[in-house]
Design a protein around this nucleic acid. Sequence first.
DNA 1: CTGAAAGCGCTAACAG
DNA 2: CTGTTAGCGCTTTCAG
Lengths: 351, 351
Amino acid sequence: MRQALDTIAPRPADRERQVTTVVDVARRAGVSAATVSRVLAGRNVVAAATRERVLEAVRALQFQPNAFAQGLRSGRGQAVALLVSDIEQTVYSALTKHVQAALEEIGLDLLLFNLGHRQDRLRGLLERATALRLRGIVIASNDVIPMRELKPLVSALQRQGVSILSIGQRLDRYGIPSVVHEETAAAARAAQYLLDTGRAPIAYLSRIRNSATGQERYRGYLAALKGAGIDVDPALVWDCSYRYAAGYEAMSRALDRRLAFRSLLAASDELALGAMAAALDRGLKVPDDVAIIGFGGIAWGEHVRPALTTLGADPKAIGEHVRDMFRNLLDGGDVPRQTVVKRPLLLRQSA
Amino acid sequence: MRQALDTIAPRPADRERQVTTVVDVARRAGVSAATVSRVLAGRNVVAAATRERVLEAVRALQFQPNAFAQGLRSGRGQAVALLVSDIEQTVYSALTKHVQAALEEIGLDLLLFNLGHRQDRLRGLLERATALRLRGIVIASNDVIPMRELKPLVSALQRQGVSILSIGQRLDRYGIPSVVHEETAAAARAAQYLLDTGRAPIAYLSRIRNSATGQERYRGYLAALKGAGIDVDPALVWDCSYRYAAGYEAMSRALDRRLAFRSLLAASDELALGAMAAALDRGLKVPDDVAIIGFGGIAWGEHVRPALTTLGADPKAIGEHVRDMFRNLLDGGDVPRQTVVKRPLLLRQSA
DNA sequence: CTGAAAGCGCTAACAG
DNA sequence: CTGTTAGCGCTTTCAG
């Protein structure tokens, strides 16, 4: 058969795929396969001299134990699935990076699934978890999750020994340990800061109705106003989506309507930047005419002009907590229902 | 043993983890395990009536075939490793999203590894590939890769039937089929556009020495100048890193030195935005005083003011090519050494 | 401390 | 078209 010059041939015949096994190692070390296994598992029941011989053989043959055989025999693999709602959003990619690194430290691999905000995908993945004999599942999504329907599936998985964690959204009332950023307290802190710097009235911009997180942040806004004895003006509470365009539009509309406000607390950085762009486009000065605080601490916030003041995230801390929790779980220990990670208020130029 | 109220118990005793197997399905359908396997594999050698009974049993028992057993028996799993140099950069997260989605279409799972620009990690992962019985490895990195050292490892993997692809960097001379964006042509097109709109002299900003991609783009810049009969001014070629801060600094220094240029072609959007910020901070007008074109088409480019003109990416097209290539490879077919994806010149405000 | 033997759940030959 | 049999590579009793 002719082979075109600008193509690359596929894998060769199957007989060539000969890979070394424990038996090969055992033979070379003059021991049994069982002993090789014991050495590799790090069991300290093996005589030092024997261990050395085995290790030597492993090195010499560049032995790589077949993960499938290990998983089949031991009933469990080394993979954890990370389910993110949208890997393109920097919150999730930052989280992904740190979770992957942290899990790698304890020898776990990361299977990534992008949910794309679709609920049916979440269900599908939970259903596949059994087939994949996953070690665990980490759900990183702020979308509303139909836990009522999913609860039986989740429980079944947990019964099978699959550790399930949630990041960013509290799911602990469904038996899923959750690692979350502080939301209410952080929003209150930001609103308080605006109050303290004489920026009232404060507008609030967020997806509220369809977002658990949005609601939590909204509560912080309310609490701060209440604490200062200020009544909430419904006209200054804008419920919209999370994205940039929504922020732009909301701010434009508010300006059209000549609403009176001196600052804006937005529940996401995208929203904040969108709103800021709208304000700038109409000749307003930020923060002088309107101060703006975002939520999330995305990378670009510090690069735009004026640089965005925001409530940052701490993905590294989250990754480390996830790692520690898995470590505990695998040791048969308990983990806290809820772990709260603090948000730093990153004061920059916009407020 | 006491159980604290604010913790969640770990997985239950092992005996509870009872999961259905092919044998259970076979029994319920009144056939042998082999037949169940045949039905699940979609082989059309099974009688329609039998198939129905099996499928029925599968549904009733919610059977999920053990991926480890399948992988062990068939010698190969369903996982592809995606190695990205930095998932936090939007180029890579966009790529990851589309590659994951495309691979899922053909039933492949994505194991994600963040290289963090570290060469030793790349080697480590290639070494683990055998143990994981990976279906394939996709390398998405623009860092310089020590292919000379890695070649034996790569060849060994390919001999074992692991499909290896490269995204973004041409590695086809090492036998690795590559899917890349056009670089030289795109840079030339951008430079030509600046020339056509009367923006000479054009400065060029990039990591050049340590970046294969940087070099390719640089060649396009050179070609455009040459085509217009313009000599390159070495003072206007700035070799730096890829990140925002480097762009800011390079532009600041150029302005300090009162270099004469009317536009800038930057080899990344981050660089371009950094340079733009520096220009704006010094009171220059973009694009009037200096026009700027970036490279990459990151999401934020269209949101900053002025919006960034850039040579975009097409991660969706890349994902689809990767999917098609795996499909071919798994069918035992050939694959082109090199696939080039076109970059759109996204004309916005900065040039 | 070490070896022999069994078997995890599935699929591929080989019969029938 | 379907069942029987064997075995992928590893870990884990159970003896010794």
